[in-house]
Design a protein around this nucleic acid. Structure first.
Lengths: 159, 159
DNA sequence: CTAAATAGGACTAATAGAGTTCTGATTGGA
DNA sequence: TCCAATCAGAACTCTATTAGTCCTATTTAG
């Protein structure tokens, strides 16, 4: 399914929330309320985004979070990477990969970086600013998908 | 990390193995041996690929699996979709998504299909034929990735 | 008939994901 | 000066998914 985690999913939701009021900081509680997401999760996610440099935080009363740079300069890829680590579709394509038991039996490995890059480019091309706009035109299914739904996580889960 | 499962990862490895000898069927055992992958897994994956129509199978002695169509007409997306179900980065972007609790608090939902489509296009653009070629030019890291490795599965895992 | 294969599905163990909780550090304002 | 509102960090639990195995058919070449 090529999925992203809920953390990243929620992260995008929260970032769009912040993008809407680009100036003022908002508290974790306020954002959780706006998006109807559990506060502890929201809190955790905002901390991570701050550590990654996508948000600025202000402690104390009247504190909160705000975007570290303009929404147009933040991409979906930035947010996902901040919350999930480097974009790598398989272990091969990551830095850590070094001594690989199967390497000599695997001609594919050299291709993963290209695939990764293509996906990365796709995610990089969507800015937070675009994502913060109301709704382009509703869910268009682009491939009918024969098998059971193997989708994963949700900003909008039915549950 | 935008990961694919090991099943899909192995699936690609096995398909490239079959692409190399496009005519003759090969047994699950032979493929497992070639790729140094556990036979039960290989077996399971080949069955799934067959049910999805990417492979033809021949039972009985001297039987085995072979590509159902030319390698150039099979894409990475086809293989991944066969093994993981419809490509959908979040639950919103899947068919099943209907009554969504949070929909009214979520302006992002309309954008997911676009993102999905971009990723899908990226995966669709890589054919099995290309992937079966030796190795283009080795692993180039395209984004330095600041945080701990959050990569997932492996055709070439170090373990 | 038998051995070599695939078909299908149930089952288990390990891993990762989702979410909570607790303790500590800042800071604006009464 | 103190308190309440906030963020910081990390440990921890629970659950779902993934990875992998195993067993019992069924098919078929020789």
């Amino acid at each position: 399914m090529i999925r992203i985690t809920r953390e990243a999913d929620y992260g995008i939701l929260l970032m769009t929330g912040l993008a809407q009021t680009e100036g003022q900081p908002r508290s974790a509680a306020a954002l959780a309320q706006q998006r109807r997401l559990p506060l502890p999760m929201v809190s955790k996610i905002l901390k991570t985004l701050t550590r990654s440099g996508l948000l600025n935080s202000q402690r104390g009363a009247q504190g909160g979070y705000s975007l570290a740079r303009p929404a147009i300069e933040i991409s979906a890829a930035d947010i996902i990477r901040a919350l999930e680590g480097p974009l790598a579709i398989t272990e091969c394509s990551a830095d850590a990969h070094d001594g690989c038991a199967r390497q000599e039996h695997c001609e594919v490995s050299g291709h993963w970086p290209r695939i990764n890059q293509a996906i990365y480019a796709a995610l990089q091309s969507i800015s937070l600013m675009e994502m913060s706009r109301p709704d382009p035109s509703h869910p268009v299914q682009f491939h009918p998908a024969p098998r059971a739904v193997a989708t994963i996580n949700a900003a909008n889960r039915s549950a």
